[in-house]
C-alpha cells in the first residue's frame, strides 16, 4: 500500500531532479554539495509525509530516496542525449577535459596531446557517457537517499504509534448494561 503511494512523490521529485541536474547553467548548483539531488530527496520526503495517513519511518525514507535517485538519473540521462546532440558528440566533454588538464600540474605536453587525441576518437563520447551515467547513478542514489531520509526525519512529526490521519478517531464501545440478576429460586 505504502509502496504505491511512494511512486507519485518519487516521480515528481525525480523528474525535477533530473531536469535541473542536466540543464547547462542551472546544473552548476549541484556543485554546492549535490544541492539539486539532496533537494530532490527532501521534496520527495515532504510530499510523501504530507500524503501518508500513517507515520513514515526512516526506513521508508531510504526506499523513497533510492526510487527518487533512480528516476532522477534516468531522466537526467534522457535529457543529456538531445543536449549532447545539439552541442555535438563529445564537444562538451572535450572542453571539460581541457579545463581538467589545466588543473593538473606536471602533465607533460606529449601526454596532454595523447589524452586529447584519445578523447577526440570516434565512439569515445558514448563510452564516457556510459561511465558518467554509472557514476552519476551511484552519487544520485546515495545523495537522494540521504536527502529523503533527513527529509523524513525533519517533516515527520507524528509518533510511530500514533493513529492514522485518515481513519476516524477511536471510540471505546458503550458500556454494556449490567446483567440481570439471577432468578431467585424459592425453596
Amino acid at each position: 500500500m505504502n509502496e504505491e503511494r511512494m511512486l507519485k512523490p518519487a516521480l515528481i521529485a525525480g523528474v525535477l531532479l533530473g531536469i535541473l541536474s542536466s540543464l547547462p547553467v542551472i546544473s552548476a548548483f549541484n556543485c554546492v554539495c549535490c544541492a539539486w539531488v539532496i533537494g530532490g530527496g527532501l521534496l520527495a520526503a515532504y510530499l510523501y509525509v504530507k500524503d501518508s495517513p500513517v507515520p513514515v519511518t526512516l526506513g521508508r525514507g531510504v526506499l523513497l530516496g533510492l526510487l527518487t535517485g533512480l528516476i532522477g538519473s534516468i531522466v537526467s540521462a534522457l535529457f543529456l542525449i538531445p543536449l549532447s546532440m545539439l552541442t555535438g558528440p563529445g564537444m562538451g566533454i572535450l572542453e571539460q577535459l581541457r579545463g581538467t588538464l589545466n588543473q593538473m600540474p606536471n602533465v607533460p605536453p606529449e601526454t596532454r596531446r595523447m589524452i586529447e587525441s584519445l578523447y577526440s576518437r570516434e565512439g569515445i563520447g558514448t563510452a564516457i557517457y556510459v561511465v558518467g551515467f554509472i557514476f552519476m547513478l551511484t552519487l544520485n542514489l546515495l545523495f537522494a537517499t540521504a536527502g529523503s531520509t533527513i527529509g523524513v526525519a525533519l517533516f515527520e512529526k507524528r509518533k510511530p504509534g500514533s493513529p492514522s490521519a485518515g481513519a476516524p478517531p477511536y471510540e471505546p464501545p458503550a458500556p454494556l448494561p449490567p446483567p440481570p440478576p439471577p432468578p431467585v429460586e424459592n425453596p
Binding site: C31, L97, M104, V107, I115, I128, V131, G132, L139
Partner: peptide, 25 residues
C-alpha cells in the same frame, strides 16, 4: 594517479567529480 604518471586515469576521475563539484584548485 597523477603523481604516478597515470594522467589519463586521473583525468577520468577528475572528470567524473566535475559534475558534482566546482573543483577550483
Amino acid at each position: 594517479l597523477s603523481l604516478l604518471s597515470f594522467h589519463a586515469a586521473s583525468c577520468i576521475v577528475r572528470l567524473a567529480f566535475s559534475c558534482v563539484c566546482h573543483q577550483i584548485p
